[in-house]
Structures are given as C-alpha cells and as structure tokens.
Write a protein that binds this DNA or RNA. Structure first.
Lengths: 207, 207
DNA sequence: GGCAAATATAGTACAATGTACTATATTTGT
DNA sequence: ACAAATATAGTACATTGTACTATATTTGCC
C-alpha cells in the first residue's frame, strides 16, 4: 500500500520540479513518513525512478498489444501514439532528463532500456510494413526506415521539448500540436486510402 | 588562462560521464588545483555549465552568420546543420540532460535560453522561406511551419538519442546518419533545383 | 487470545557533494 | 620595492543519498 503511495507522491514531485531537485527527505515529508521508512521500501532513490519507468513501460505495452488486435490503419496508429503521448506526459518527470536513462544503461540489473528500445524500433518497422501492406502508405523500404527513425526520435523527445519550452503546458493542446506534426509527416507517404483514414482520425480528434 | 583550462577539463569530464556525475573536487584534481581554487573562478558548478553553454551558443552564432552571407540553398543549409551537429557533439555533455536547461529557464540572470531558442525558430522560418523564394523547396506556409517544428526538435535531440543509444558512437558516422535523415525530409519538399542542390551536397559529403 | 515472526516506522550516523569562508602565496602596477 | 590585486590552498558547513540500529505494529499460528 505505502509503496504505491510513495511512487505516486514521488512522481508528482518529479513532475513538478524534476528528479534531481527532489530529495528523499522531501518525499518522506510529503507522506508524513520518516526518511528511513522510505528507504525501507526503496533502498536507493534510483529504485523509485526505475520502478516508475517500469510502470510507464508496462502501461505502454498494453497500448501496443491493443493496437495489434486491430487491423493496421493510420487512424489506429495515430490513436496508439496519442495514448503513448499521454503516458509520456504523465511520467514526464522520470522520462525526460536523459541522464537517468544513461544511468539505466550502465546498470546491469533492472530492465534493459536499450533492448526495450530496440524492440520498440522493430515494432515500428513492422507497423509501417503492415500499413503498407494494407495500402495505407506508399513507401519503399528506405522510406520505412526513415519513418521508423523519425517516429523513434520524435516520439521520445517531443515531451522534453514540450516540457522544457512551455513551463506549464496545456497537455491536451500540446499533444494535439505534436500529433498534428505526426499527421503531417504521415500524410507525405499516405495513399488515398491512408488519407481517408487520416481524415477520419482528424474528425474524431480535432472535431 | 586557468579559467579556459577549467572549462576544457570540465567539458571533457562532462562528456565522458555526464554533468551530474562529475564533482568539483574531481575537476580540481584533473588540473592539479585545490577545490577552493576552482570555486574562485566559478563560484557555482552551474556557472561552469552556463559558460560552456554560452561558448556553444556563440560558436553556433558564427555558423548562422556565415550561412547568411551566402545565397540560400539546400546544400548550404545542410552544410550549416552539419557544422551545428559537430558543435552539439563537442558539447554533448552539457547539451544533453535537459534538467540543466530547465534550471537555466528558472534562473533569471544568465543567458535566456528560451528567447534564444525562440530566435532560432524564427531564423529557421526565414531560412525555409528563403529556400522557397530561391526555388529550392516547394512548400506552403503550413509546410514551412512543419519543417520548422521538425528541424527544431530534430536538431535539438538527435544528439541525445545518439549519445544515449550508442555508448561510444563514431561521431562522423552518427552525424552522417542524422544528416541523411534531414536530407530525406527535405527532399520530400525539394523542387528539381533543390534536388540538384541536395545531390551536390551528397557528392561532397558522402562521396 | 497470546505470542513469535515478519513487517513497518523512526531515528541516527556517515561519506560525499556544492559552496562559503579564511588564510597564504603569487603576480602586477607604479 | 612595496602595496594592491589576483590566485591558490585549506577548511568548514549544510545538504544529500544511503546504511544501520532500535522500536513499534501487524500478521499468522497454536
């Protein structure tokens, strides 16, 4: 019970002021616990971070799995990305500040971020191949490689940009903006059928 | 004299192991100085960081100025970006790890990163407008907004991706890869003339 | 219900860090 | 050559992550 509360409060504080500026004692104070009690649940501050990252990762996995039950479409893909974007916003305090990820790379135990990200890359590769097979995009292999590179970089760092450059961004507004960019990029490769799918998504999302 | 040495050694250490993991005492040791002597030149550790960021920013400014003396071309633009990418690599230790930038946002004194980045955005806007005027790209205003968004996000975070996901990346190789992505994006909007310019750049760069 | 084992909480201690402060040493300008 | 400015060293202190110990509370079993 308390473990989840610690995670929740920590995330809240990390989101507000960044991982680095939040101390263990402050997390404890937030929950009226003693510092020693926090270290009972999480021996190291980094452990809180890794656990939160794991939460984030798990949440995303369910989104991916859900997507794979449907047949490939740009609208579906954009819906997936929207879900992921909301996750990223929710966990922005741990997700941005890449030195954390660097640390995780160094750590031998705990989830292997690199392999995860490698897997995600392959997942995107497959998604775009499927979109091509379904006649939603018109792209050769080189185009798909490009789209994969685009989506991995864009999808990882939009939240950093949004958080850094807007002090208190309107989430919905920010996500809309970045989804629009995504839409734009995809429409450059969309077939007629793909464009219809995009229009459908737009209608649902932007009204 | 010593001030520059401190900056140089600090940057080296930051690049190797990240800002957070390098202490003042270690910087001092690297130069056979006493810790107190380092704080004589830089009262706060953050001051070293900000000075390095300023160096980086100044270096880039000269690249931008140089670009503006030539007439607009995609090849020229790509050359500019290549220079900037090398700067970013050189200063990767201070450039990535966005919490730093967040800090700078909070600090009232020192260079205002936000206004700088706003200015850079306008600069890109003008660059693309010029490229259109020169008949290098075929893009409406919406397309240009998109390209500006693309280039600001891409240009800011490629180095984070490269540094995070390749432990010791071959600089030249990495930059080539990301420049190729840039080329790909631009060719989606390039006119015949623009495509020629791109081919010219490719020939010079990739042989 | 009572009691041992497990779990939870508090409190303290310690090494490391950024930083402030003081005391010397060295250079510089006249 | 000597006073002022600059540079260097050394120390001290508050804060941080973290380890450790002691006490309190809950849980499972007879």
């Amino acid at each position: 019970m308390t473990e989840k509360q610690i995670l929740k409060s920590s995330l809240k504080l990390f989101n507000e002021r960044g991982y680095h500026d939040v101390g263990m004692r402050e997390i404890a104070r937030e929950l009226n616990l003693s510092p020693g009690n926090v270290t009972y649940y999480f021996k190291k501050k980094d452990d809180i971070l890794f656990t939160l990252l794991q939460e984030y990762s798990d949440q995303n996995t369910t989104f991916y799995e859900k997507y794979h039950t449907e047949s490939a479409s740009i609208a579906g893909f954009l819906g997936l990305m929207k879900n992921i974007f909301y996750s990223q916003y929710q966990y922005r305090g741990v997700y941005i500040g890449n030195y954390i990820v660097q640390k995780e790379f160094q750590s031998t135990d705990s989830i292997n971020y690199k392999s995860t990200s490698e897997r995600r890359k392959q997942t995107f590769q497959k998604m775009f191949t499927d979109l091509r097979a379904e006649g939603h995009i018109n792209a050769n292999d080189d185009d798909i490689d490009f789209l994969v590179s685009f989506i991995t970089l864009f999808g990882r760092f939009w939240i950093s940009e949004a958080t850094i450059f807007d002090k208190s961004p309107d989430v919905t507004q920010a996500i809309k903006h970045y989804i629009r960019l995504l839409v734009k990029e995809l429409s450059l490769f969309a077939t007629e059928r793909g464009k219809l799918s995009i229009e459908q998504f737009k209608k649902e999302e932007f009204g």
